[in-house]
Nucleic acid binder design. Structure first.
Lengths: 252, 252
DNA sequence: CGCAGGGTTGATGGGTATCAAGAATGGTGG
DNA sequence: CCACCATTCTTGATACCCATCAACCCTGCG
């Protein structure tokens, strides 16, 4: 991998290393599988619905989301992506699936040829295990979103989302003093949480009023993660991070 | 596999055969991997949240659901299972994940030792590909439920669910004259769709009044799948059944 | 300077929850 | 076979959460 963009794929390695035990040698080998490191501007599409899946696409820097549009024009965001996340798991089954990935801020994206990855997995089976674990975590996150959409009210939904993001960002070492970068607009949050942007606005105000959350210019701050988690009915272990828990995973 | 219960695992084979091309020999070999075929009564748990994943559990007959409970006691059903469905994919990553599986009616369940399955996949890689495809379809279904919960109103949600179930049942050859068995109560439907059982009741009445749907004693009948699909904003291809489409998949 | 995108606020209405009670249904034991 | 009971379904009344519509403000930017 050429590091011409002065971006390291560290969040990606941190993500996988938090899921399976990997030796230094394996991390190095994995790093060299990365064949492209591109940038996209905000609002640009990173992956189209029907794109072939010959590359594993990994978000390295910035915020992105998966989404799908309904025939009536409405949009549901099905996931927010943070650095280290795999944009789409369709490569595991070589089928195409109807969802796109778009950048919410300027982003950096790494691409790994699927063929090379599969070949390398013959030597290092831990690579494929890591992917399957990441996919399982992805499932768990989707499941919790379903629970949010079905059972939580607006306040709980917003609180839950922020707790989830904080945990995921912390896992890859991107939370500092309770703050992390996250670039979704209130309309984006609405499309993710099944709320109108107006109601998202009022809900965020309520969370600010309670001194639980601060949010401005793409930076989120959680002043009291425990209270927020209680309000959100947040259960970290349900996200399937077996080895991570609430502790940060340091990059040796 | 002893066929002492006079139940064949045909729906399971039909499910996988609809996802990947399999030869007769492979189907036979797969069939012989099944080591147990049990029955459970309605409301019984088939899989516990924290159960180990040393068996692949497949629903063969009856209706079941995956669900999770929140600390406040509310329940979200995250999936309905029809014959041929794999109850839980945690075995793919050996992590435990916080959701249970329960029977909605009397059910028959097949169990395949994971170890034997993995071993057999060495000889027949198509087995693992079939599992990954099934898992991808499962993802697609979950994603569409998120869209339902976030973007569809009550009428559309119920209509969508019925369209989805009809398609899945038809894939395994269990739809006859637009009718199929499905055992969820209105309260179950509510827990799945994020609605109260009272509102599910009124919504079903509306669908009956429009001569779109009939539902009684665990048998669902769709009188006009096309109209229902339009109402539901149903797009079959988004469920990721690449090879199935809207046509039934006949058994060899 | 003007414009566009995002955030904020108020007024109003609708979709759905909740509560309560009664009617069907189905299973069970006497 | 029937009486009984629990579960499910149905219906009506009321309340509230959140969507929608319509401004207006603020900020960054060309």
């Amino acid at each position: 991998m050429t590091d011409r963009n002065l971006v390291s794929i560290r969040p990606f390695l941190a993500n996988l290393a938090g899921l399976v035990r990997m030796r230094e040698e394996e991390l190095t080998h994995l790093m060299h599988l990365v064949k492209a490191l591109n940038r996209h501007t905000a609002h640009q599409h990173i992956l189209e619905e029907e794109a072939p899946s010959d590359r594993i696409v990994v978000l390295i820097q910035g915020s992105a989301c998966r989404f799908r549009r309904l025939p009536n024009g409405r949009r549901q965001i099905t996931a927010f992506l943070v650095p280290g996340d795999i944009c789409d798991y369709r490569f595991l089954s070589s089928g195409t699936v109807g969802q796109s990935v778009a950048a919410l801020s300027p982003v950096a994206v790494a691409r790994i040829p699927v063929e090379a990855f599969v070949a390398a997995s013959e030597t290092y089976p831990v690579f494929m295990r890591a992917m399957l674990s990441a996919s399982a975590v992805n499932d768990a996150i989707m499941r919790e979103w379903m629970i949010s959409l079905g059972q939580r009210n607006a306040l709980e939904r917003v609180a839950y989302l922020l707790c989830e993001l904080e945990l995921r960002m912390r896992r890859v070492g991107l939370v500092e003093d309770g703050s992390f970068s996250f670039a979704a607009t209130q309309a984006d949050l609405g499309d993710a949480l099944g709320l109108s942007s107006v109601h998202v606005n009022r809900t965020l105000q309520e969370l600010r009023r309670r001194h639980l959350v601060g949010m401005s210019k793409g930076v989120v701050t959680l002043y009291d993660v425990d209270s927020l988690g209680r309000l959100a009915l947040f259960e970290p272990h349900s996200l399937g991070y077996d080895r991570a828990g609430r502790a940060a995973v340091p990059m040796h």
